[in-house]
Design a protein around this nucleic acid. Structure first.
Lengths: 238, 238
DNA sequence: CGATCTATTGACTAATTTCAACAAACGTGG
DNA sequence: CCACGTTTGTTGAAATTAGTCAATAGATCG
């Protein structure tokens, strides 16, 4: 429990807000004005930032690190909703209602979180109405992503979802002409399984099948090389 | 194809915007100013309002009727994302990008849709910044619903999802002390199955099991009486 | 009243999970 | 830097769950 609370002063790159898309379109002067509302907190790997059932803390913006947002069933099975990286936020609903948090947020690596209290956020939006638009853009995009997650879970089987998620992870670093892309998982295979709504065992088996068929090559625990992108695309249900 | 286009004039209850939560906090004068941007269109039952791949049309607000938003797999399986009722909207992403629509929208009953073009919407938000906040509230709530949909699909089996969805449908009309609630499905059982990510047959079987066990009683095609709410809650994975 | 759409049921098959045992990789402290 | 304990990942066999196909029944609508 080594997290410490302090106001959001200059960090190594200047104001922490520079990392935050919903705020970094402001002028330095405006940022300075807002910065007094923000407090920052550190979480070690494995620490829970919030848990389902907690009182809402306001808007939480990831300044640095990586955060797993998930739901747990009563039998302990986990469904990951998304992985937050620097600049992402959570708790937008706290702007409108006093509600209890419905998901768990866990730091996957050492993480800095900026917090803006509900009442302060209202002032900020009042002074800078463009922030509401930025929030709307982000939330709309997350909704689009969430709906595509529903699509994946509802329409495709495990094999198709595994193929799809590998392709998505590779997408960022894909070089169009090459069919061979190496990717390093930023989360464990266990977490990857939970993201696509299956078990470790099923994921492991499907990856083994893909490897047998020559579609991928696995090295160590977290490195996957895509050898036949077309084959995976066909499987994933184009 | 009997849909006709006309500007959003007075309908039976006055300006169509009165039905629309994102707009109905405005004064009559403000509404009048906005109304010139809005055009309204009618769709018969079964007509497609938009289809995946279409160019975005701007913000579409349901004025009257019911709309099914869904995704289709390449093999024709359907996943319903949500059912829109009067006051709900779609196409919020069109405020930010020129994008192609990623879902299908079909009128389930005769439906009136108001359309505000992307560029006009930008003017409107500029003149009435509170609309951005209203949109943000709505989209944030939809995201919450979408994430709970992901949870259902990822963590619970068909039996649990069936129990849960019946309880949800009943919730609106639940009378706390009575354990017996009658509900009438506003969608077909086929659509209900597609909403919870299963097949007609599996839904039908699970409902039959619940009926055998005395948890529910089905009458006709669309009426379900809940006889033992507790039993369903236990099943659904509290 | 008949045609069409919607729902149910049975038998079978396929997909996925579960449980259990094992193996590999990781990181911590000596 | 190595050894050991812990975590993470893999594999097999069995059990369960859900989906498919096909036939039938029931509603609904013009």
């Amino acid at each position: 429990m080594s997290n410490s609370e302090h106001s959001c002063e200059l960090d190594s790159q200047g104001l922490c807000m520079h990392q935050v898309p919903i705020l970094n379109h402001l002028t330095d002067k405006e940022m300075l004005e807002i910065s007094r509302y923000i407090e920052s907190r550190h979480f070690d790997k494995g620490e829970m930032i919030v848990m389902s059932g907690d009182e809402s803390l306001g808007l939480l913006v990831i300044n640095k690190g990586e955060v797993k947002i998930s739901k747990l069933s009563s039998h302990g099975k986990e469904q990951i909703l998304r992985i937050l990286k620097a600049g992402d936020f959570m708790g937008e609903l706290s702007l409108f209602h006093n509600y209890s948090i419905t998901s768990n947020a866990e730091a996957l690596i050492p993480t800095e979180v900026c917090r803006i209290k509900r009442s302060d956020m209202k002032h900020i939006i009042n002074d800078f109405p463009n922030i509401a638009l930025k929030l709307l853009e982000e939330v709309s995009e997350r909704l689009e992503t969430a709906e595509s997650h529903i699509e994946q879970l509802g329409l495709y089987n495990v094999e198709q979802r595994v193929a799809k998620v590998i392709l998505q992870l590779a997408e960022a670093k894909t070089n169009p002409q090459s069919h061979s892309v190496a990717l390093t998982l930023s989360i464990s295979k266990g977490n990857l399984a939970s993201l696509i709504g299956t078990t470790n065992e099923s994921l492991s088996r499907k990856l083994a099948v893909f490897e047998d068929q020559g579609f991928i090559k696995q090295t160590g625990q977290r490195s996957i090389q895509i050898l036949d992108k077309d084959a995976l695309e066909n499987l994933s249900g184009i």
